[in-house]
């Protein structure tokens, strides 16, 4: 009895002996693959948990007129873009001509959400570079922007007619982004309605 148990034990040991070197090797190879893939990942773009949700409610002053309050209801009605921008934001300078082009195309309305900014500076920016927005709401202390999950600028949200958020774009919108992501999405949302 004792003997057979022992030899059984030995047998098992030999059968598993290859694991001693194979396991570390396998882990290492998996790690290499992981790093290889990791090199091309860009983890700075976070998915928004707000996608699929209605817009967060807010009430903010208009940038051009502090006496006018705008709410999320004012964004509703059509498929629209909501662009988060600021004058201190370097990339927003890069994005601005693209927004002007989009405004000229007039495919969808663009609303501005001015983020953590100075009203004077923002107004003179729009004056100098042109105003692509239907209107801009002013959020100097970022209270509303946080509700929208904003963590940088520029960011652009796509909403449908009922005010449901369908996409959040982090960073500058390029022509490629517009053609491959925004336009198909906008068409799909318009047809769905």
């Amino acid at each position: 009895m004792m003997n057979s148990a022992n030899s059984n034990n030995h047998h098992q040991k030999h059968r598993l002996a290859w694991l001693r070197w194979a396991a570390p090797l396998a882990v290492f190879l998996l790690l290499l693959l992981l790093f290889w893939r990791g090199l091309s990942l860009d983890s700075s773009t976070l998915p928004s948990p707000l996608v699929g949700q209605p817009m967060p409610a807010f009430s903010l002053e208009m940038l051009h007129d502090a006496s006018v309050l705008k709410t999320e209801q004012d964004f509703k009605g059509q498929v629209a873009l909501i662009n988060v921008w600021a004058t201190w934001c370097f990339a927003c300078h890069h994005e601005h001509p693209m927004l002007m082009d989009l405004a000229y195309l007039n495919r969808v309305p663009i609303y501005g959400l001015n983020y953590r900014d100075d009203r004077e500076a923002a107004l003179s920016w729009l004056e100098a570079l042109g105003d692509p927005y239907q209107f801009t709401v002013f959020d100097p202390d970022a209270t509303v922007s946080i509700d929208w999950g904003v963590y940088g600028a520029p960011e652009t949200f796509v909403i449908d007619q009922k005010g449901i958020i369908h996409y959040r774009h982090v960073g500058v919108i390029t022509i490629n982004d517009w053609e491959t992501v925004f336009l198909p999405l906008i068409e799909q949302l318009e047809q769905a309605a």
Binding site: A17, R20, W21, A22, P24, L25, F28, L29, L32, F35, W36, L39
Partner: peptide, 21 residues
């Protein structure tokens, strides 16, 4: 560096697998 890592550690592991017995 990834290639360096792969070659140096990979060869060490293979050698280990081959000779450690």
């Amino acid at each position: 560096i990834l290639i360096l890592l792969g070659i140096s550690v990979g060869s060490a592991m293979l050698l280990y697998a081959w000779r450690a017995q």
